[in-house]
Design a protein around this nucleic acid. Sequence first.
DNA 1: CAAGCCAAGCCAAGCACGGT
DNA 2: ACCGTGCTTGGCTTGGCTTG
Length: 317
Amino acid sequence: MHIDLRQLRHFVALAEHRSFVAAAAAVNLSQSAFSRSIQSLEHSAGFQLVDRGSKDLPPTQQGLVLLEHARRLLRQAQELDNEIGRLNGAESGALRFGCGPAPAAQLVPQAVAGFIADYPRAQVNFQVDNWQELNARLIAGEIEFFVADTRRFEADPDYRVVRLQPQRWTFCCREDHPLAQTGAPTCRELFAFPLATTFRPPNIRKVLVDYSGRRDFQPAVECEHSYALLNVVLHSDAIGIGSALNLEPYILRGNLRLLTPRDLPEHLEELHTRYGIVSRNGRTLSPLAQAMIARIEHTDRALTERLSGLPSTGFDA
DNA sequence: CAAGCCAAGCCAAGCACGGT
DNA sequence: ACCGTGCTTGGCTTGGCTTG
């Protein structure tokens, strides 16, 4: 049997997306070309890879065996590529990594901006997604690392975690908001307005229930994307919650005001971000990935230092 | 270097199937 | 019955590789 890594990559995509349309889009192919690629692999293998009779296209028994080998081969191919790059001291080539929505707002773009100045011949591809998707891509070897909340990976020996600086989560409102003049409202005054929040920190719901005094408290707006969320805050009476790092540009421009409820509990460790860089233990990182990680850490430190000039929000531990 | 071959990919049409 | 969605297939183009 002729082994074609491209076709194996397509099969892995199909197994993950359980749809020819979605998988084709994921590998940047037309659906028909993708279908032919799978057919060609099936022809080479001599058996059907997926059960087309079922709606969610489950892999056949033989398909599962091939899938396992395909994932291993793709991972090893990536590692070989990384190793060759390392031996050559490569400064060019493709770098693929991922990041969560919050790091995608400020930290990662600024780090990438610095990186492409240092490595103009590198091709950078970073995907913004939730941690589950990022983890799946990391395991499949499609990305070398991701930047996201690290809580689920810190104790797992299969993962290598580099923690970034914790950033405080803060309340904010638009500059001409009724509460903007008071600066330090009470929690009751604050929660009289609709709340717009990301899904993080993970325990934000519990904290909001405590603050609002309402067991059934629900934010008016939930959105993973910090940029979109802040635009809601900028154009409404909503009170936003965001990491200090992502709010900073808006605060400095005077578009947003930080709010410090005067009756907040003093010590709230959990209202800090817990972001970091997650990679797989035992896998060699390419020189470009190592350089990118160093750049993200450097940018993180620089931004955190700059943030120390911002006014306190009452969320400081 | 031109001609031929072939794999990969696209578009459009057709088919199957589920939902209304 | 009709419509929308998802997959396959036929016909075609394109680009890379081989051969003379």
